[in-house]
Every structure is written in structure tokens, then in C-alpha cells.
């Protein structure tokens, strides 16, 4: 087990390296000069040349990459070329907001989807099943920016139940923080809730047809034991896989959701940095996302072993 863990963790380093090379090459392929972008409409040719030199953008690309990677290996991801803020600091100061939003979105999607999917499977064809299926179709097909704007219009502007955006740190006021969290978390979590509900339902339907469920029932096990102890635990394996992948989807959705709700997180930073060609920040965020993906997948693999005793990494 320990050996397996070490091997998986060690594998992350070459993957992260390949990701960084790919991202570096891709962002430099686009014909946009960050120096021109920074100076915007005030981009006189002399200022552009001077700024390009100041930022080191006039050096050959491989040279720029080697400098970046050698600093990165020492834990220094450089400074933003737009704001001169250290990359690590820029990401870290926005990470709590994104973690909170992502956790809330993932939590409500799991807490709602698993019971809803299970009930829909157990009461197949009933009104609640129709409702759940309808919700899953709507949830995956409506883009989250639309859900966000609709929530703002109805629940915020019209009914004045929630603020339309903005963020209050947990350390400042817990009730205000939670109040502002509700709408963006719903917006961000809707797609994943829909997907998880669907997966739980279909996986549950399949498990319920298995012989061992009939056997458990025949043994006289209680309804609760059969559903929770036998059916659900086995039905959750594909759901866990999906939830693992969703860590990435959540980060991706955060780009849009954070922009709509003026949520000061990594997603908004990513959007601004991509449009501003802030290479050091983009590199830093992509590395962070790559690592969180890999860690989430590792957690999924470990969860398999817990859910299914036949799987072992020893």
C-alpha cells in the first residue's frame, strides 16, 4: 500500500513537467503580445519594446522556459507580468475562496444526488423518478452562466433573498459568508448534481437486479440493510469515479461562476490571466489544477479499495 502510494506520488512529477511544457508551448503559440496587452491603447512602440525587455519577453522561448522551470523547481513560480505580484501569493490569497465554493458545490451535489438518484431508482417510473430525470436533463443542458443570471434575477433582485455577488471571508463574518455562498454554490454544483443523480440512478438500477440483492432479501435482511449496506455501497463505485473527475469540472465551472458572482477566487484569476497573457500566473494555476486532478484520482483509487474489498493495492 505504502509502496503504491509512493509510486503514484512520484509519477506526479513527470506528469506535471509534461503539463508545464504543453501549457508553455500552447500559450506562446497565440499571436498576442502581453506587453501590448498591458499597455493597451497607450502602447507606443518605444514603451512596448522597453516593457518587453523588462519582462524578459524578448528572450528566446526555450530560454524563458528553462529560467521558469529552474526557478519553479526551487519553489519560486515567479511574479505576475501584469501586476508584479508573486505567483504563489496571487494563487494562495485566492485559493480559500475557490476551495470554499468548490467544496460547497461538490458537497451539495453529492448530498442531493445520492439520495435523489437512489430514490429515483427504487421508485422507477414514479413521479419522483420523472422529476429527478427531468432535473438531470435540465441540469446538464443549461449552461451555468444562465443558471447564475437567472438565480440573481429571481432570488436576488426580485425576492431580495440573497446578495447578487461578492464575497465575505469566513474570518470576518460566518453568516454573511454563508449567505453569499448559496447562489454561486448552487450555480456551480447544478451540472455535477445532475450528472451524479443520473449515475447513482442507473448504477443503482443495475445493482438492484443482481443476484446477491435477491439473496440478501431472501436471507431476511432488513430493507435498510439491503439498500444501504449492499446495494448503495456497490452502486457508488462508478459514482465515486465520476466525482473524482468532477474536481476538475468544478474548477473549470469556477471560471464562469466566479466571474458572474464577482467571487475573488482562482477561477477569476485564471480568466483574467488568460485574457491578459499573464504566463507565470497561467503556468502556476495549471500546475495547481494538474496536481489537484492527480490527487483527486489517487483519492478515488484509494476509495475503491474501501468500497470494494476485492480491490487491493498491497
Amino acid at each position: 500500500m505504502l509502496q503504491y502510494l509512493v509510486r503514484r506520488l512520484a509519477l506526479m512529477v513527470p506528469v506535471a513537467f509534461l503539463v508545464s511544457v504543453a501549457v508553455f508551448s500552447l500559450i506562446h503559440l497565440t499571436p498576442v503580445d502581453p506587453a501590448e496587452l498591458i499597455l493597451g491603447e497607450e502602447r507606443s512602440p518605444e514603451a512596448v519594446i522597453a516593457l518587453r525587455h523588462e519582462l524578459g519577453l524578448d528572450r528566446p522561448l526555450p530560454d524563458q522556459y528553462v529560467t521558469w522551470i529552474s526557478h519553479a523547481l526551487r519553489g519560486d513560480l515567479g511574479r505576475s507580468i501584469r501586476t508584479n505580484q508573486p505567483v504563489t501569493k496571487a494563487i494562495l490569497e485566492r485559493l480559500p475562496a475557490t476551495l470554499e465554493l468548490g467544496t460547497a458545490a461538490l458537497a451539495w451535489s453529492v448530498l442531493l444526488a445520492i439520495p435523489l438518484g437512489t430514490i429515483a431508482a427504487l421508485r422507477r417510473g414514479s413521479p419522483i423518478d420523472v422529476l429527478a430525470t427531468g432535473f438531470t436533463i435540465a441540469g446538464v443542458s443549461v449552461p451555468n452562466f444562465f443558471i447564475g443570471i437567472l438565480l440573481i434575477l429571481v432570488l436576488s433582485v426580485d425576492l431580495r433573498l440573497f446578495p447578487p455577488g461578492g464575497y465575505t471571508p469566513l474570518t470576518e463574518s460566518i453568516p454573511d459568508n454563508l449567505h453569499r455562498l448559496v447562489l454561486p454554490a448552487i450555480t456551480l454544483g447544478t451540472v455535477t448534481t445532475a450528472i451524479n443523480t443520473r449515475f447513482t440512478r442507473s448504477s443503482m438500477l443495475e445493482v438492484l437486479r443482481q443476484d446477491y440483492i435477491r439473496t440478501a432479501r431472501a436471507k431476511g435482511a432488513s430493507w435498510r440493510q439491503v439498500i444501504v449496506g449492499h446495494a448503495l455501497k456497490n452502486a457508488l463505485i462508478p459514482v465515486v469515479t465520476v466525482v473524482g473527475i468532477q474536481v476538475g469540472a468544478i474548477l473549470e465551472g469556477a471560471l464562469v461562476t466566479e466571474t458572474i458572482f464577482s467571487w475573488p477566487g482562482v477561477g477569476k484569476l485564471a480568466i483574467d490571466s488568460i485574457f491578459g497573457r499573464d504566463y507565470p500566473i497561467i503556468q502556476g494555476i495549471v500546475l495547481m489544477i494538474a496536481f489537484s486532478f492527480m490527487l483527486a484520482n489517487l483519492a478515488v483509487d484509494l476509495a475503491y479499495a474501501w468500497l470494494d474489498p476485492r480491490i487491493s493495492y498491497a
Binding site: 443570471i149 440573481i152 434575477l153 436576488s156 433582485v157 431580495r160 446578495p163 447578487p164 455577488g165 461578492g166 466571474t259 458572474i260 458572482f261 464577482s262
Partner: peptide
Amino acid sequence: YRPITDSNAALAALRTGD
């Protein structure tokens, strides 16, 4: 000062007194 890039969100914030 609050940066609100989405015009709909800015209008909503103005209406709600945010």
C-alpha cells in the same frame, strides 16, 4: 470599490443596494 465585470451582475447589485 468592487470590480464587477458582468453588466447584469452590476445592475443587480445597484438595484439591491449592494
